[in-house]
Every structure is written in structure tokens, then in C-alpha cells.
Simulated scan of single mutants.
Amino acid sequence: MSYVEEAVLFAFAQQTQVGILSLPSTPADTGIVIAVGGPQYRVGSHRQFVLLARRLAAAGYAVLRFDYCGMGDSSGAAKDFLSATPDIAAAIDTLHAHAPQIRSTVIWGLCDAASAALLYLQDTQDARVTGLCLLNPWVRSEASLARTQVKHYYTQRLMQRSFWTKLLSGQVAWGALKGLAKNISLSAAPTPSIGLNKLPFQQRMAKAWIDFEGGILLLLSGNDYTAKEFLEYAGTDSAWSEAFQHPKLERHDLAGADHTFSNTLTQASVENLTLAWLATAKHAARINDGVEA
């Protein structure tokens, strides 16, 4: 399908945000907002978001990728994913304003953009959002990082003969073993129990995930510590105990993929899986004359 790309400006808190709208000639009922993860702007690593937006637009989906305040071409002070809710809300408003045919929105996010998408829902319960595409969600804490390092680095390293040879020969400092001991101690630390209004962001993410009635597409890289850390965290924290039983969860593990799916094959896989999931309409609320069926 043919589509056009245009820059759009939208205001938020006296700041100007910049986005790129990819608009098909006849948009589907569902539109996609691509949230940005990490300190980067709307293009993404190796032009990932550009390529994804164009592929989705060619398939008939209106897509908006945008810069948070303080990043790229948007004005204001830089912020992190914990403060991105107003930016995402403004982007969804803008997408619907420029493509009034859209009846629902999917948020697509990699790394801490996936986290921001969940936090947005926990903050707003925005009924317009009927689907989430989450890739390698960010749940980093001191304890979760330690658990991941112990399981996926230190355990394998201790099984290698070369490690002990270097240790006994003085090529590896005994400080490495002290680092292991410290990580084991940190990995055993429980999540602090605090008031409902001061939950750690990871538990707020879990609550949004479990309460969400729309569809969730989860894509995990096989060669990525962020993905491994997410699985470790979700497997040990009680707040996440029901997450993988979500009735509308579709999960794919991409063996060999790195954090940003940087090679051509894995990039294409992400695009294909996203399109296939959108086509099933598992993400969409069943709406008839404004009444959810």
C-alpha cells in the first residue's frame, strides 16, 4: 500500500515534540506508536525504527515514531523512561488527530521503551491502547543484574578449566572471586516491601501487564543480557508470578538475536512477527458501535 511520511510537531508542557508520521492512503483501524528506548531518538539503532515504521505503513498501519522531550529535535530537558508517560500520551493524541480513522493504538517498545509502555498504562489506563509489542523489557536492579551475572556469566566461567589455570597462575586476580561473592550476596536480596504508591517500577510494570485486557506480543533476544535479566526477574519476583499466564500473551524467543536485533535476518523476523501478530487482531478490542463485545 502507498503511504506518505511527514514531520509532525505537537506541544506538551510548553515544549515542542517532533515526530515522523508514516500514513497509508487507507489506514487500518489500528495505529502504532513507536516509543524510544534509551538515550536515542526516533530513528533508532541502525535505523531500526525507520525501517519498521515503513514496513508497517506499507502494510496499511499508520505509525508515529517520535522524540521524547529533550531528545533528538524535541525541546525541553532530557528525561528517562520513568517520566515518559506525558510524552507517550501526547504522541497517541497526535496519531489519532492526524489519522481519525484509527480506533485503537498499539505501543511498540524495545528495552526501557517497553517498560515505559507498561508504566504508561499503569499511570493512565488509556482505553485507546489495545495492544503492546514489548521487546527485551528493562527491569534492571542491583539484585536482578547480580542474579543474571551469577547464572549466565560466573557459573559458566567457573566451569572452564582456563579460568582456574589463569587464577592459579596469577593471571586472574582473586578480586574476581570477591566480585562473584558480592554478586551472590546481592542476588539473594529480596525486593523491599513498601507502600502501594511507592512500588518499584518493576512491580508497577507487572501490575500493568497482569491487569491489561489487550494483547501482548513479547519478543526476546537469545543473545542479550537484558532479556535474560527480564526472565530472571519475572521468574523470581512474586509480582510477576502470573505474567506469563496472561490470556492474550504471544511470546517468541529469537535465538542468536542481540539486544537491538541488529542483523538483517533478525530485523526482518521482528517485522514479520509484528505484522503477523497485528493481522491476527488478538490485540484489538472487539468494538461494535462503541460497545465492546
Rank of each mutant, 00 (worst) to 15 (best):
I216A: 07
A239C: 08
N263S: 11
G222P: 07
W240I: 05
T260G: 02
S221T: 01
Y233Q: 07
L218A: 11
L199H: 10
K207I: 02
L196I: 14
T226D: 05
S221E: 01
K228L: 14
H259F: 05
I210T: 15
E232Y: 06
G215R: 13
E242I: 01
L265R: 15
D211Q: 13
E250N: 14
L199Y: 12
G195V: 10
W209T: 07
T236W: 00
L254Y: 00
T226N: 10
Q203R: 14
L219N: 02
L220E: 06
H252Q: 03
L231K: 00
H246I: 06
K248R: 14
F201A: 07
Y233G: 00
A206V: 09
L196A: 15
W209L: 09
L217F: 03
K198S: 15
N197M: 15
E213C: 13
D211I: 05
N197F: 15
P200S: 11
S241Y: 02
F212R: 09
D258L: 12
A257S: 11
D258Q: 12
T264W: 00
R251S: 14
D237V: 11
D258S: 11
G195A: 15
A206L: 12
K248F: 07
L254M: 05
S238V: 10
S262T: 14
L199A: 13
G195P: 00
M205I: 01
A243K: 07
H246W: 09
P247K: 01
F230S: 03
A234W: 05
M205F: 01
I216P: 04
A239V: 09
I210Q: 14
A257E: 06
P200Q: 12
F201D: 07
K248M: 05
T226V: 15
Y233I: 00
E242Q: 11
A239R: 06
K207D: 01
F261M: 11
G214N: 05
D253V: 02
L199T: 12
H246M: 08
L217T: 03
Y233C: 02
N197E: 15
T260C: 09
D258V: 12
H252A: 04
F212P: 04
F244D: 04
A255W: 00
M205V: 01
G195T: 14
F261W: 13
F212W: 03
G215L: 11
N263D: 15
F261G: 09
A227W: 13
A234L: 03
E213F: 04
A243G: 10
Q202V: 08
I216G: 08
A243E: 05
L254A: 06
E232Q: 11
A255D: 02
F201I: 05
Q245L: 07
F230H: 04
T226W: 02
W240T: 08
H259S: 05
D224C: 10
P247N: 02
L220C: 03
L220Y: 01
K198Q: 15
N197V: 13
P247A: 03
M205C: 12
S262W: 04
E242G: 07
D253C: 00
F212H: 07
N263Q: 13
W240P: 03
F244I: 01
N197S: 15
L199R: 14
P200D: 09
M205R: 06
L199V: 11
L219I: 13
T264C: 00
L199F: 11
L249Y: 11
L254V: 08
L219E: 04
R204H: 12
L265Y: 15
I216F: 04
E229K: 10
R204F: 06
A227K: 13
I194H: 13
R204E: 08
E213P: 07
